Amino acid sequence: MNKILITGGAGFIGSHLCDELIGKGYSVRVLDSLIAQVHGAGAERPAYLHPDVELVVGDVRDKAAVLRALKGVDAVYHFAARVGVGQSMYEVNEYTDVNNRGTAVLLEALIESPVKRLIVASSMSIYGEGLYVSDNGNIVEDASRPLKQLKASDWELYNDGQPLKPIATPESKKPSLASVYALSKYDQEVMSLICGKAYNIPTVALRFFNVYGTRQALSNPYTGVLAIFASRYLNNKAPLIFEDGEQKRDFVSVKDVAKACLLALEVEEAAYEVFNIGSGNSYTVNEIASKLSKTMGVEVEQNVTGEYRVGDIRHCFGDISKAKRILGFEPEVNFEDGLKELAEWLEEQVAVDNVDQAKEELAARGLTV
């Protein structure tokens, strides 16, 4: 395999993958629509995109554009997607059209122009709540929080009245789809695996946890939480933290994610498998807000809202033992070093803070409690 296509490859994760692939001697083409919410109005080729990347500006829903982009390609990374839980709950048609139908268009094109490997970007959001264990040692896969409990600001999860303890979530946990975004990512994953098996296209699904690093779209209020917090800090505003801020997540460097993506291409045993891609660690949202402010040298108090957003979950962090065992994946960037690199990049960035507007849009639709 030599020529690689990345749909959505001009974005955050895709552009880092371009660097990784080109550094390993691959030839890379990118198909990207350069949407305004990510790249700004009237966007042109991003300055950070590797100069050796062949950029094709086009929409993954346009089959003719996809077929042109596939010409001469040996493998495909499918990253093109609308991203964000909150926005997906009111832009239902847009998220379904880009994520679900866009994947269907790509798969039909691959039937006509098959490749040697397809790697699809999935998401930890498909798990809904992560895995929990009760006091008596029973594993609980289907934990949930009733609305009455959330309105009482009781944030944790219970089983028979006893509090549950979150534990690392493996790929074997059954999905619990709590948002339109989660549904669309699961649809992308399953459609790709079904068609891959049917047409003998070795397919790999990577369930990314909370990816952070340079090149995230700081003015997009529905992107990763660290980018949203960074945007607030750059504008001397407190980050908005929902619930009590003690919800736990797995934060993984985009550089480690790019390495995992390369392994998914090159490791033969990865075919038709699903992998969690995370750091194997967990932090509370309060912790990461505090660590980021200190690293950036910003003294702004956190704004813990005590509100709940429809589609949000309490705890979810990844069990990455399968990726270690089969892919040979080992995260190398510790959180403090990753934050330092992010902070250095942020010193030269300007962010338009759209967080308050996004919060108002959710509240106006009854999507916050």
Rank of each mutant, 00 (worst) to 15 (best):
V190P: 03
K148G: 04
A182S: 12
I241F: 04
A238P: 14
T214Q: 14
A227S: 15
A178I: 15
K148W: 09
V211W: 04
D250M: 11
K148D: 12
S184T: 15
P221Q: 00
F229T: 12
G224A: 14
A182K: 06
E156V: 15
P202E: 01
F208W: 09
V257C: 04
L218P: 08
S172Q: 02
Y158S: 02
N236M: 11
F251Q: 03
L193F: 00
P170A: 03
V225D: 06
K237W: 04
D154G: 08
S253E: 02
S253N: 11
P239I: 04
V190E: 03
L164N: 07
K255N: 12
I241R: 06
A182D: 00
R232D: 14
E156F: 14
P163C: 03
L240V: 15
N220D: 13
P239Y: 04
K197G: 04
L206S: 02
L193C: 01
I201M: 13
I167Q: 01
L150P: 07
L193R: 08
S253G: 02
N220I: 01
G196D: 03
V211G: 04
K174M: 06
G245N: 08
A258W: 06
E156K: 15
Q162N: 14
N210H: 11
A227Q: 07
V211Q: 01
P163K: 12
L157F: 08
R249S: 11
L218E: 01
S231N: 14
A205D: 00
K151V: 12
D244V: 13
G245K: 09
G161L: 03
G196Q: 01
A168D: 01
G224V: 08
I194W: 07
I228E: 02
P221D: 00
L183I: 14
Y212L: 03
I167W: 04
E246H: 15
L193W: 00
Q188T: 05
A227L: 03
C195S: 13
I194Y: 09
E189S: 12
D187A: 14
L226N: 12
P221C: 02
V211E: 00
A258V: 07
V190N: 04
Y186Q: 13
F251V: 05
T169W: 01
L157M: 06
Q162C: 07
K237F: 09
Q162I: 13
A238H: 11
N235R: 10
A227D: 06
N200S: 15
P175R: 02
Y222P: 08
T214N: 13
F251R: 08
L206V: 09
L206C: 05
D154M: 13
Y233T: 10
Q162D: 09
T169R: 05
L218Y: 10
R232V: 11
S219E: 01
K255I: 09
T169K: 05
A168E: 06
G213Y: 03
R207K: 10
N236D: 13
V254D: 02
S153C: 14
G196P: 06
S231Y: 10
E156H: 15
T223V: 13
N210T: 10
